[in-house]
């Protein structure tokens, strides 16, 4: 009874819509969230004070050892856009190319690109109040512009499903179309190696790299996957393509992205390996293919991923060492294998 009362009280106190405009799901655990958030608020406040000092005087954010350390501990929402813009190089690109974004939107338009984007804009984040038709302001138009501009800017990539979710998050954080565009450029054009081009070779390579890393670090899980003939693409495609959007809780995704912009694509492996390692015993109980799929969905929910601060500490300790040199070597090997398969 007492638990039910507490749950109801938490339900009354915690808003139904999160700070980013997402409606909380029906089965949202308000009591657990409130408990986590009251502790996290203390951390957020402490970090906010430190960040304000660091960023005093305005100007851009440059990469440094201090900034990297700060970012791992979380960027406060009010500074997030500025920090992402700074450390990813997006700000520098934007400064170097004044008016470029507007010109992309004014230029000649590619009809099939427009159609592909329009279809997906209508079905991006139906659970977000700002992305609904009739919302004031409605972010569907903003999302359309950012994706269209990107498709014209990077014709080799054009538009790939999944980019709508990423651009959507960038818009929610920056609240600025042009900045969202340049951050998308930083991610798709520089940070992620060839994930969204028509061959999706970089994406397929990285899924193979994850498989190899699991084989080395968590051989029992690799054996389970092999035993049931489960391809890694079945369970982790969304993790890579959407960079954990709609996979992990919003706040956790943003904390992951803080590090992604600052440290690059290997963060994705850290997150994936941590999720798998933490739940290794649970995954190994799976007895069939559907069971494996269900468990890989299950491990992206619950307290472990909601408590984003602890989760972020774990991603830097749990998977062990993960040098960029070894990732590059694995990428080369896996890419060659995929190319040989044709």
């Amino acid at each position: 009874m007492e638990t039910a009362g507490r749950a109801q009280a938490a339900r009354d106190r915690v808003p139904r819509v999160d700070p980013y405009g997402f409606e909380r799901p029906e089965d949202f655990d308000y009591a657990a969230y409130e408990e986590f958030f009251s502790a996290y608020l203390v951390i957020l406040t402490r970090r906010a004070i430190k960040w304000s000092k660091l960023l005093k005087g305005g100007g851009g954010v440059q990469k440094s050892v201090t900034v990297k350390r700060y970012i791992r501990k979380g960027v406060p929402l009010e500074h997030r856009a500025r920090v992402w813009m700074g450390v990813s190089g997006a700000q520098a690109q934007m400064d170097r190319n004044p008016g470029y974004y507007r010109r992309l939107l004014r230029g000649e338009r590619d009809g099939s690109l427009e159609e592909a984007i329009r279809t997906d804009v209508n079905r991006t984040f139906p659970d977000n109040v700002s992305f609904r038709k009739g919302a004031e302001p409605c972010l569907q138009g903003t999302l359309y512009n950012v994706l269209l501009a990107y498709g014209h800017h990077d014709r080799g990539v054009g538009y790939c499903q999944g980019m709508n979710f990423i651009a959507g998050y960038l818009i929610l954080i920056t609240k600025n179309e042009e900045e969202a565009f340049w951050l998308l450029d930083a991610l798709v054009g520089r940070i992620l190696p060839d994930y969204y081009s028509p061959s999706m070779l970089g994406l397929r390579t990285d899924q193979e790299v994850l498989a190899e890393l699991v084989r080395t670090k968590l051989p029992a899980v690799a054996a389970l996957m092999d035993g049931h003939g489960v391809l890694w693409t079945l369970v982790v495609s969304r993790w890579f393509i959407c960079l954990f959007v709609d996979v992990l809780p919003v706040e956790t995704v943003l904390r992951v992205w803080d590090c992604l912009f600052s440290e690059g694509s290997k963060i994705i492996f850290r997150v994936a390996l941590t999720l798998i390692k933490q739940h290794q015993a649970f995954i190994l109980e799976a007895t069939s293919v559907p069971d494996i799929c269900e468990r890989f969905k299950e491990i992206t929910r619950g307290g472990f991923v909601t408590e984003c601060h602890t989760f972020m500490q774990k991603i830097f300790s749990e998977p062990g060492s993960l040098s960029m040199a070894s990732i590059s070597r694995l990428r080369e090997r896996c890419r060659a294998k995929l190319l040989a398969q044709g």
């Binding site: 209508n122 499903q161 495609s237 969304r238």
Partner: peptide
């Protein structure tokens, strides 16, 4: 049935 449904990225599984 959902009026609006996210695009599927990659592969999903049902039984």
């Amino acid at each position: 049935f959902a009026q609006v449904s996210d695009p599927t990225v990659g592969v999903d599984f049902f039984s």
